[in-house]
């Protein structure tokens, strides 16, 4: 089958490249995570109002960044998959979705844990938290759509369309939720933007952000690899079926 060789020529190169990156991503993740956690838990100053609870921010804020940027990345690879029909681009988007959903979920959980001492309740309809919640729904819809197709090629195209529509909508949703929030809540309620950004806070925050990113790259490589292998396995099984 000449066609299959052509179709999966790209993944071969992809596997070679990621195979080289993978060990580095593991090392970088471990080091950055250790440094970032140490800095945010021990070095960074406690907030004069919130005390040590402010340290939740170092887990929460980068997770929220990741949640949003992974969806954007998925939309970009979806566009690449749709336009240039690059099979790895589709698989990357598919593999990234659950990771992004986990980061979004982490941001929600840490947000509500942080909210407890700040607001005295585990959930407040704060603009940022609400936007994150909607983002989680977008992720869940995307993953559910992937699951509901048998044909992987069709699933890839359908989810690409959804991801692109979603990414156009995210700024509108964000804007509308902010609008809704200012309409319904007095300005005195503290928001999650935290205290003024000082370098002693910013540096651990950035280190944690980089650690998350490198963790994402690591897990993404594992997942994409697994996807490619699964696809090959399916094709092997099918050709076996045909011979019988």
């Amino acid at each position: 089958m000449a066609i299959d060789l052509h179709k999966y020529a790209n993944p071969k190169r992809f596997l070679a490249i990621t195979g080289a990156i993978y060990p580095w991503s593991v090392g970088v993740t471990v080091i950055l995570l250790a440094v970032g956690l140490y800095m945010s838990l021990f070095v960074a100053p406690p907030d004069y109002q919130q005390g040590d609870t402010v340290r939740i921010m170092y887990v929460h804020v980068p997770a929220a960044w990741m949640g949003l940027s992974i969806y954007t990345m998925m939309a970009i690879s979806s566009a690449i998959g749709l336009i240039w029909k690059h099979p790895v681009a589709d698989l990357t988007a598919k593999a990234a979705a659950p990771i992004g959903a986990c980061f979004t979920f982490l941001a929600l959980v840490t947000g509500s844990l942080w909210g407890q001492p700040m607001w005295g309740t585990y959930w407040v309809w704060d603009a940022r938290l609400t936007s994150m919640l909607i983002l989680l729904f977008l992720y869940l819809g995307y993953m559910a759509l992937w699951e509901s197709f048998d044909d992987q090629g069709k699933a890839a195209k359908a989810t690409s369309i959804l991801a692109l529509v979603g990414v156009i909508n995210i700024p509108i949703i964000k804007f509308s939720v902010d609008w809704w929030n200012t309409l319904h809540q007095p300005a005195s309620v503290a928001t999650m933007s935290g205290p003024k950004i000082h370098s002693s806070i910013l540096i651990p925050l950035l280190v944690m952000g980089l650690a998350y990113m490198s963790f994402f790259v690591m897990v993404l490589i594992i997942r994409v690899k697994a996807e490619i292998l699964q696809r090959r396995l399916r094709i092997l099984r099918m050709s076996e079926l045909k011979e019988h």
Binding site: I3, D151, M238
Partner: peptide, 9 residues
Amino acid sequence: LTCLRADQL
């Protein structure tokens, strides 16, 4: 013409 349906030629 070549037709591929659900990864099957």
